[in-house]
């Protein structure tokens, strides 16, 4: 039995953690805006955020390549700012994981915020609380379970991202080879034991996440 290279696991954890931090911040703002404000293009914004849930990962990967590649608008900006490309880097993988995880948090948090009695926010307004204070002191604490559940789901999704990651970050061992890609690689090269070990690790993380989600949403702490 070959000794297991744990780099893919650490890379996966790093990618998923970075992605989830951004998912949390940006997803929460999106969820709040979608739940509490009426504006033109709201449905379109909702559709764009949700799209990664329904698109094939390869299509998602293709879009990311177009946007983040050398000639893409975001890729060009990033390259002129940092001097390096996003394609074939772990940062690229993190962006793929971010895009895949964002709808999970946004939808869960939005539903949680929408289920709060809007009289509570109205009451807070008459009591003189500024909008930002209402969000921090009333809305987010009350929607906390839904937000946490969405975060865990997004983290699990980011950890397992495969298709889009492969297209944007490639499969460079020791650089961009995440866990799910390493499993694919191990199976392709006939290393069944390695594939099994990594599969079990990823499955374990997924089961734990789902148990955690169940706990948050049922309110048993």
């Amino acid at each position: 039995m070959s000794s297991v290279d744990w780099y893919p696991l650490w890379l996966s954890l790093r990618v998923a953690t970075v992605a989830t931090v951004f998912v949390f911040i940006i997803g929460l703002v999106l969820a709040y805006v979608l739940a509490r404000y009426e504006f033109r293009g709201k449905e379109l914004l909702d559709a764009i955020v949700t799209l990664p849930l329904v698109l094939p990962p390869t299509v998602l990967g293709y879009y990311l390549l177009v946007l983040l590649g050398r000639n893409g608008p975001i890729g060009e900006l990033y390259e002129s700012a940092t001097g390096s490309s996003l394609v074939f880097t772990w940062q690229g993988a993190a962006i793929a994981a971010f895009v895949a995880g964002l709808p999970l948090l946004t939808r869960s948090a939005r539903a949680a915020i929408e289920s709060i009695d809007s009289d509570l926010e109205r009451a807070a307004r008459t009591l003189g609380l500024r909008e930002i204070r209402i969000a921090l002191k009333i809305t987010i604490p009350l929607a906390w379970r839904g937000i946490l559940a969405g975060t865990v789901l997004a983290y699990a999704r980011a950890l397992g991202e495969f298709g889009a990651t492969l297209m944007i970050a490639g499969n460079i061992p020791g650089q961009t080879q995440t866990m799910s890609i390493a499993i694919y690689d191990a199976v392709q090269s006939g290393d069944g034991t390695l594939a099994l070990i990594m599969t079990l690790v990823l499955s374990g993380v997924a089961v734990l996440s789902l148990l955690a989600v169940g706990k948050f949403t049922k309110g048993r702490w």
Partner: peptide
């Protein structure tokens, strides 16, 4: 001062 029909007390 507004007293809502549902009272709207902050539950947390």
């Amino acid at each position: 001062g507004f007293v809502f029909q549902s009272y709207a007390l902050f539950p947390h």
